[in-house]
């Protein structure tokens, strides 16, 4: 049975505790987050604000010249409603010189430049604000590899990375994030009219159900077929997961010595704290 319902009170408690613990134990008390106007970053922001106090969260609005004005308005709604600190940095002046180097640059390349420019601002402000960068990638995106490596995937901690998109929606609703943000089509807003679901070729709701069977319930592809999923869809999703494994790990180090980082030098990040 596929049941992606979550107890939002319990989820909220665990995630708020996680943010608080993982930021304060390493000597910080603040968080910085890129807020796009979408549901994922809104949720990360609101969780961080509840964990650390809104005065300790800096939400960065980082529009590019083609970004939808609606995205900025939605980001502002969250900032206003939850009384979170914010700063706006237009990344057009950072991005355009790179884009102008190759007038034939593909949409994907342009999108990557924007995502990585936002990462630069995020980490710069994390130093300036004395904060850790909180990530905004959900489990669906992470498994499908739908992100820019070292771009929107870059963060110090990620509170929502084990929640599927449909679960993010449940928690966002429970935390009072405006319905306009929850109900609009998800978009990376890297070009006008872009939506995640058009680009992926399937809806998050379909993907979440299949991923739940494949990943959480350890179903084989044949069992997913029996459960009623389309053969091509199953193949597409499994291929995406396999081909994007590199995005879910640090670069492998060529082992030479007896003790090598990543293989047999094993400590948690929380070592000593």
């Amino acid at each position: 049975m596929i049941n992606l319902k979550i107890n939002t009170d319990l989820t909220r408690k665990i995630l708020i505790g996680f943010i608080k613990s993982e930021i304060t134990r390493v000597g910080f008390s603040r968080a910085v987050i890129n807020i796009s106007g979408g549901i994922d970053s809104a949720l990360s922001c609101v969780l961080a604000a509840e964990a650390l106090g809104p005065e300790n969260v800096l939400a960065l609005k980082l529009p590019y010249s083609t970004s939808s004005p609606e995205s900025l308005e939605h980001a502002q709604m969250v900032i206003y409603q939850f009384n979170i600190k914010s700063e706006t940095v237009d990344i057009t002046d950072m991005v355009d010189p790179v884009l102008h180097q190759d007038l034939k640059m593909s949409k994907v390349r342009k999108g990557n430049v924007m995502a990585r420019s936002r990462m630069i601002i995020l980490y710069d402000r994390s130093e300036a604000f004395g904060a850790l960068a909180v990530g905004t990638s959900n489990k669906t995106e992470i498994l499908l590899g739908y992100s820019t490596l070292w771009g929107d995937s870059a963060a110090a901690i990620n509170p929502i990375g084990d929640l599927y998109k449909t679960q993010v929606r449940q928690l966002a609703r429970a935390m009072g994030i405006p319905n306009e943000i929850i109900d609009k089509p998800p978009s990376a807003d890297l070009w006008s009219g872009q939506t995640d679901e058009d680009e992926l070729g399937f809806t998050y709701e379909q993907a979440d159900k299949l991923l739940y069977l494949l990943v959480d319930q350890r179903y084989s592809p044949e069992e997913c077929l029996e459960a009623g999923f389309d053969k091509n869809f199953i193949h597409k999703v499994i291929t995406r997961i396999r081909k994007t494994q590199f995005k879910r790990m640090l670069p492998p180090i060529a082992k030479l010595s007896n003790r090598t980082v990543g293989y047999d030098f094993l400590y948690l990040r929380d070592w000593g704290s």
């Binding site: 049941n3 319902k5 979550i6 107890n7 009170d9 319990l10 989820t11 665990i14 084990d162």
Partner: peptide, 11 residues
């Protein structure tokens, strides 16, 4: 370690 989040009020 807590795991197994679903609609129940406990993991």
């Amino acid at each position: 370690p807590g795991r197994g989040l679903n609609e129940h009020e406990k993991l």
